[in-house]
């Protein structure tokens, strides 16, 4: 009983490292390949552009990671984002003097409300996350169309101060990137150094034992979807400010990109595991793909299919790596 196979555990650590190093290597490989085709890829300007574009995605990926860690999924993200963005856009349109911070707050609150509704449904009833979020996706999208009357809010209807949220900078860093960094620091601390953060992982890893450990599973689920909503609401404001337009179909299907960033970053779709460093890399890879493909003259119509293939290959590679580790563990078992 006291006999210990230390090798096994270090093997477990190795997979995680292998996956992240692999991802990093892949990112470098793509970057070099693209750079060889088009010299303007690795310029400061383009990198800044790329990171700015990835900022919103990476913020959303944090929320999605927490949702997936609890064995859930959120398909309503695009709709919530649109609803929060549209509400904010309409408000700043009729109150041009509104403080940009108030606008950000408004969008976040709308997101929190949306997330809390989903969280309540999932925590309090037996409706599975995929159904609950699929249903609310429709509801929020419908509401977005209704409050806007089917019309756009376009750039010239928005006050400059609002559009400046996305273009301005704090401490010399673009606001979007700045916000993303702040959120990542907070999220890292929350996930790794607070009780509630760890409880999210406990619930995802084994819901039954979580109950026995005295964790309130319902509270955790509610919290996770509310956080997802808050981040989505915030992202909605940033999105509308960045693209300077709010439409009924803003961010339609964007949840797929966010889920993709998580899956690429090694978040286990079956719940229980997922790391901040992983989703940063996952978001970055998607961001690079989006940025690099046009630079090497790949038609924008190819991007969807390429993205889809990358996701599929990533999950399959993950599965195969896990299989070979399991097989190795079996081989090492002495008989």
């Amino acid at each position: 009983m006291a006999e210990v196979t230390v090798g096994k555990s270090s093997k477990g650590l190795n997979i995680v490292k292998f996956r992240e190093l692999g991802l990093l290597g892949f990112i470098l490989l793509i970057s070099i390949a693209v750079q060889m085709r088009n010299q303007s890829f690795l310029t400061l300007e383009n990198i800044d552009d790329m990171i700015t574009n990835t900022a919103i995605l990476s913020v959303l990926a944090i929320g999605m990671m927490l949702v997936i860690v609890t064995r859930g999924i959120d398909l309503s993200l695009g709709s919530t984002l649109a609803l929060a963005g549209m509400t904010t856009a309409l408000t700043v349109k009729s109150n041009p003097g509104m403080n940009p911070l108030a606008a950000i707050l408004l969008g976040t609150v709308v997101g929190i409300v949306c997330g809390a509704i989903i969280g309540l449904i999932i925590a309090k009833t037996n409706v599975p996350p995929i159904i609950a979020t699929l249903g609310m996706m429709n509801v929020f999208r419908g509401l977005t169309f209704m409050i806007s009357g089917g019309k756009w809010v376009s750039a010239h209807q928005m006050p400059t101060s609002f559009k400046a949220i996305a273009t301005g900078s704090v401490l010399g860093i673009n606001t979007l990137i700045f916000i993303a960094i702040i959120i990542y620091i907070v999220a890292y601390y929350f996930i790794n150094h607070t009780r509630t953060g760890r409880q999210i992982y406990a619930v995802g890893s084994n819901p039954d034992s979580a109950k026995i450990s005295g964790i309130n599973n319902e509270k955790i689920l509610f919290l996770v979807y509310t956080i997802m909503g808050a981040l989505t609401g915030l992202a909605g404001v940033l999105w509308v400010s960045k693209f300077a337009s709010a439409q009924g179909d803003t961010a339609m299907g964007y949840e797929i990109n966010v889920i993709a960033a998580c899956v690429l970053g090694g978040v286990n779709i079956a719940g229980g595991s997922g790391k901040i460093s992983g989703i940063i890399l996952g978001s970055l890879l998607l961001g690079i793909l989006n940025n690099a493909l046009p630079l090497i003259n790949v038609s924008p119509f190819w991007q969807n299919a390429i993205q889809g293939c990358v996701i599929l290959v990533a999950v399959i590679v993950n599965a195969l790596v896990k299989r070979s580790v399991d097989r190795n563990n079996l081989m090492r078992r002495k008989i």
Partner: peptide, 21 residues
């Protein structure tokens, strides 16, 4: 190891992507 959700989610993007191509 992959759930039907994740498989059909990826093929959903790929199939429509091919239609766009």
């Amino acid at each position: 190891e992959l759930s039907a959700v994740i498989v059909t989610l990826s093929t959903m993007i790929i199939y429509r992507g091919i239609a766009y191509i």
